[in-house]
Amino acid sequence: MNTSVMLPAVHVRAPGMLTLVLRVGPAGADGDHQLATVYQAVSLHEDVVATPAEEITVSTTGPWADRVADDETNLACRAARLLAEASGTSTGVHLQITKRVPVGGGMAGGSADAAAALLACDLLWQTGLAREELGHLAAELGADVPFALTGGTAVALGRGDRLTPALARGCYHWVLGIRAQGLSTGEVFTEWDRLHPDPEPVPHIDDAVMAALISGDPHRLAEVLGNDLDDAAGNLAPAVQQVQQVLADSPALASLVAGSGPTVAALAPDHPTAVEIAETLRTARVADHVEVVTGPAPGARLLESVREDEA
């Protein structure tokens, strides 16, 4: 590890994500389902500031901070410990997380924290690991963490960690209807198993989805959006169905549950219409929080760092 120049602070930002398409296959012997997914990173993000410390610690602020444990179970803390072990680093770190992605909302906010922590600690400790090596560590932390590192738009297979970047032209405008009470991913899949006792053996992504992404046309993308977990999430959280009912009478082109829910994402044709849809949701009072975001967004990236000789 190169320690010739120390960084007193490293600030990394990582995106939350939407699942534009999610196809679910049967569960394997390990309980994990085979998935075929199209991810898109969006502009609702997590910030992690890493500073040198004697031990590895974490603290959280932001709208969702009260839903996160600031201990060794925190995924960002686990990411730092994993990187320290892999790189032979003995220096500690304090990770200050600002949470903006809903907890338990199906947008992989915890995975974004982990990705940001990996990159921030890598830069702070100057481990010299290649981005590919960080990707391997990310996969050990969870299926969604590698995508939070890369961002953009991607197709994911298997558990969701076998990523292939997807060409997506244009900028897409999304409205998020967020419920304060999250959903357990495990419970949603259990409900899906109950509803679908004979699933498709090998889920796949249709060519029409890729063509829509390449076109950059939100109207074409709206035609191919779909999440197999919609019905399961709606059964467990009826508020999901209420949000979708309001969106059905709005100018939204389409809507779907984000990941395992309960966040509902609506695709708008442009930014002014997204703002109109967001106001419709707020007026209807069917969501606890409403956000307007864009995608695709970049993956985990350095925002600022200050060298000691420049401080």
Results as ranks from 00 to 15, higher is better:
N2C: 04
T3G: 08
S4Q: 15
V5F: 08
M6A: 15
L7N: 14
L7V: 09
G16H: 04
L22I: 00
V24L: 04
D30S: 14
D32G: 04
H33G: 03
Q34H: 09
V38Y: 06
A41E: 08
V49M: 12
A50Q: 09
T51M: 05
T51Y: 04
P52R: 13
T57H: 03
T60Y: 06
W64D: 05
D70S: 14
E72V: 14
A76G: 15
C77M: 09
R78S: 09
R81N: 10
R81M: 13
L83F: 05
A84H: 03
A84P: 02
A86G: 08
A86E: 15
S90R: 11
S90L: 11
S90M: 10
H94K: 06
L95S: 13
Q96M: 07
R100G: 10
G104P: 12
G104I: 09
G104F: 09
G104V: 09
G104K: 09
A108K: 01
A108F: 00
W125G: 04
G128I: 13
G128S: 14
R131L: 07
A138S: 11
A139Q: 11
A139L: 06
L141N: 03
V145Q: 00
F147Q: 06
A148E: 02
T150M: 08
V155H: 04
L157C: 03
G158Y: 03
D161T: 04
Y172W: 11
V175H: 07
S184V: 06
T190N: 14
H196G: 00
P199E: 12
P203C: 05
V209G: 02
M210Q: 07
A211G: 03
L225C: 14
N227D: 08
L229Y: 04
D231M: 11
A233T: 12
N235C: 11
L236M: 13
L236C: 10
S250L: 11
S250W: 10
A254D: 09
A254R: 12
A258V: 05
T263K: 02
T273G: 06
I277N: 04
A278I: 04
T280M: 15
A284W: 09
R285N: 11
E291N: 03
V293A: 06
L303G: 08
E304L: 10
E304Q: 12
S305P: 00
E308C: 02
D309I: 07
D309G: 00
A311E: 06
A311K: 02
